[in-house]
Design a protein around this nucleic acid. Sequence first.
RNA 1: GGGCGAUUAGCUCAGUUGGCUAGAGCACUUGGUUUACACCCAAGUUGUCGGGGGUUCGAGUCCCUCAUCGCCCACCA
Length: 891
Amino acid sequence: MSTNSEMPKTYEPAAVENKWYPLWEQRGYFHGKPDSRKKPYSIVIPPPNVTGILHLGHILNNTLQDILVRWRKMQGYEVSWFPGTDHAGIATESKVEKTLREAGKPGRDELGRAEFIKKIWDWRAEYGGTIIRQLRKLGTACDWERERFTMDEGLSTAVRKVFVDLYHKGYIYRGQRMINWCPVAKTALSDEEVIYRDTDGKFYHYEYPLSDGSGALEIATTRPETMFGDTAVAVHPADERYRHLVGKTVDLPLTGRKIPIIADDHADPEKGTGCVKITPAHDPNDFLVGRRHNLPVISILNPDASLNAECGPEFAGMDRFAARKKCVKMLEELGLMVKIEPIRHAVGYSERGDVPIETLVSSQWFCRMKQLAAPALEAVQSGKITFYPERWSKTYYHWMENIQDWCISRQIWWGHRIPAWYNRDTNEIYVGMEAPAGEAWEQEQDVLDTWFSSWLWPFSVMGWPEKTDALAYFYPTCDLVTAPDIIFFWVARMIMAGCEFMGDIPFKNVYFTSIIRDELGRKLSKSLGNSPDPLDVIDTYGADALRFSIIYIAPIGLDIRYSNEKCELGRNFANKLWNACRFRRLQGPVTAGFRDLSGVDHNLLTPDEKWIISWINEAVIMTNQALEEFRFHFAAHEIYELVWSTFCDWFIETSKVRLRGSEAEKQQVLQVLDFVLFKILRLLHPFMPFITEELAHQLDFLDENQTIMQEQFPRPLENMEIPSIMEKDHDLLDLVEAKFQLVRAGRSLRADYNIPDGKKINYFIKAVDRVNADFLTGETESLKILLGAAAIEISLEDYDAANRGAAPSQLANAGTIYLPLRRLIDIEGELNKLNGQKRELEGWIRGSRAKLANEKFLSKAPEKVVSAARGHLEELQQKLARVELLIRDLQ
RNA sequence: GGGCGAUUAGCUCAGUUGGCUAGAGCACUUGGUUUACACCCAAGUUGUCGGGGGUUCGAGUCCCUCAUCGCCCACCA
C-alpha cells in the first residue's frame, strides 16, 4: 500500500479511514468462525436502538469493545464480535408514529395494527441501518456477517420459547396487580422504567366531614383528584384520638358517597393528623390496605390519565392536572380546605413519555424473578463473573436480593406478541409456540417488554434455541462492555437468562463504562444542545483521534467531562506518530530486522539502542497487563508517553548522530528504528486502527495483501531473543538515563542565559566518577547533538574557574555541567541560585539524617527502604559538596 | 431514610499491596524558520493532596468524623 509519493507533513485521516474500512470488511478480517485449534474470544454488542443515531456514549462503549476485540485477535484468538440492533418497542413505535404524523399521513390509530406494524418495518428497512453504518466510521471490527435484530425470526423464536417454558414452569403468570402506567405511550411499564425526580408540588390538607355531623377528619395529599377513588379513611388501631370513630363513615366530598373509617397499621399516628385517605386503585400501599379490608377498587382514570366516568359528569374526560385544580377550588368553596403547603417530593416519571406516570391496577403478565435470581446472584458472588469496577457488584446484589416480579406485558404493537391465546367460548388460556387449532382462539393483544428479548441476546444472536456451531464455540462470551445505567434492565437479566436457559453464565467479565458529560458536568442531551455529533468530530479530527482522546481522558469509573477540543490531543498524537514514521521513511527503505532485529549483531547495540528496546519492552508488558485488567486509560497514557517522549523526544533525536555516521552505524540504527516502530504500530493498533494500518504499509512492514490486524500483538521479549538486552544491564540503562538528565541540565543553562537554540556553544562536564566519565566520553557525539554544542569537554578534574573564568553550572547525577561564557556572567544571580540549592539540600539532608537516626525506622522499615534512604543521604551530601565547591569558585 | 462515588496545580484528571523531593495533558511565561512534526521543539511557573482527628518509623494512599457536590435505591399519605 506504500506509495512512492512523499508522505504529507500532516496526517490526513479521512482518506485513510475511507480506504481501509471497506478493505477490512471485504476481506473478511472481522469474521470469526469456530476453529478448534484456536481459543475463542467473543463479545456481544449492547444492541443500540434501531431508531438511534450514534452519540458519544456509543463511541466510548464501542471503542472499548473494539480495543478488546482487536487486541485479542492479534493475540491469536479466534474472535467474533456479535453486532446488532434492538427493536426498542416503545421508542420505535412512538418515533414512527411521530414521523407519520409530521408527514401528515395516517397514524397508528387510523392504520390499525397490521398496517402500522408494516409501516414500522418499512421505516426500519429505510432508516434502521443508520447507527450500524455510523459504527463503521468509528472503525469497529464487528463480525457483520453475524448481525442480528431482536425481531429477526430466529430471535423471535427464542423469545417465544422462553415465554412458553417459563409459563409452563409457573414463573410467568397473568394477574391483576398495581402497575406503573405511562399515559403517553398508554402502556404498562416495569418498575425500572420509572424515573423518580424531585418535583415541586403542593401538599393539600382538607377535611372529610363525618356522616353523623359530629365533626370532620383532616387528611392530607399531594393529589386531591384521586379522592374520587377513595374507598376509606384509615387511622391507626392504637390511635386513641380516633378509636371511637372506627366503623363510622365520612361523607366523601364532591361525590355523595359515604366511605368507612377503618383501623389499619398503615396509618402512621405521627404523620400529619394520623388520618390517611385510601385509594386502592391508584396507590400501591392503599391497594394492600384495600385488600386487607375488602374495600372496593374504584379506578378513576382513562388510559391517557384523564378522569373517567367514575368521577361524575363534571370531571369525566378532564385532564388529571386540570381536575386537580378544579377539586381544590371546589373544596375551598365548600370550606373544607385547611391549608396548602409547598412540598418537594419525588415523582415518578415515564422515561419515554417524560410525564408523571400513574400507578393503577391492571391485568398484566408478570414473571416471577426470585428463583431466577438465585443462581445469577451466586455467579457474581462466587467470582464466576467479575465486575469492573468491582463496586458495581454491590448495586447488583442489592437489587437481586430484593428483586420483584417483572411486569413484562406492554400495550403497544411493536414487539414480540405474547404467545398466549384466549378461547372466546371457554375462557381457556393456551400458551404455546404456535396458535392452537380452531376458530375460537384469539391471540393476546399485548406484546412483551423490549428487554424480554434483550436478556436472551448473548445466546439468541448465536442461533439459540438451535444447537449451532457458533453457540458451541463462542458461548459463553468473554467480556461485556456496557453503561452502568442498564445494570438492572439488561446485565442482571442476561445473567439470569444465561443461567436458566444455557445452564451457564453469559459472560465472564463486565466492564462498566463511564458516563459522558459536557465540560460543565451536565448530562449530554439533545434539548441542552450539548451533545456533539460524533460524525462531525470524526470529520474534524479523525476517528483514531476521537477514539484515542476519549480513552485517554476517561477517568476510571468516573464520569467523563468531554469537549470537542479535547480531541486535539488525539489528533496531535496521531500527527506525531505520522511524522515519526515520515522521518523514518525519509532515511531510506525498510530493513530486514523490523520484526526481530535479525539484521543486527546484538552485541553491537549501542547503549541508546538498548535503552529504547528496553523501554519498548516495558511498554509492551504494561499495555498487555493493563488491558487484561480493563485499564484502558492507563494503557493509553503508557503508549502516549512511550511514543512522544521516550521515542520521539529522546531516541529519534539521539539516533540522528548515527544516521549521519558510517554506513554500518546507519544501517544498524535503521534496523532498531524499524524494530521499535513496528512494535509501536502494533501496540497502538487496537486504539488507533486506521493510522497504524496505514503506517505499517507506508513503511513497507506489510505488503498490499497483508494487514496489521493479523500481525501478532507485541509480547514481552524472552531471554533468548535479544540476549544483550535481557542481561538486565541496569547499570548501563541508568547511565543512559543520567546522560539525558545531564542534557536537560545543559539546556536549562542555555535557556537561563538566553542563548538561542541555533547557536553552537561549548560545555564542560565534570563527571562524578570514572565510570560516568568513560561513558559520557563515549557519548560525546550524542551529547553534542542533543545539546546543540560545538564541543564538549568531559573530565574528572574540576573546572578551572581561576584561569578560565567563572561559569554557570548545573548539577546532575552523572556530573556537573558548566557553560563557560566569553562574556561576564551574572555572578550574583548564580550565587543566589546556588545558595538556594544549598539551603534546599541542607533541608533534605536534615530530614534524611533525622529519619536515619530514628531507631524505630531502622528496626521496622524494610531493609530495602532503609538502604535506599542511606543511598539517598549519601547522594545529597555529595551534591551539597559539589554545590559548595561551585559557590567557592564564584567568590 | 439507605447505599455508592468524588474532593490532588487556574481547568480536566493520574497516583494499583502505605516507602526516594506528589505527576500528566490543557492553559500560562520565555526562547526557537536545528532538512519528521508550529497539530512542533526547548526551558520554565503553578500544590495547606476538602477540614479535623487517629493508626504507623513513615499517610495523597489505611481508619474515624465533619463539610460540599454527584449518582443509585426506598411505599411514606
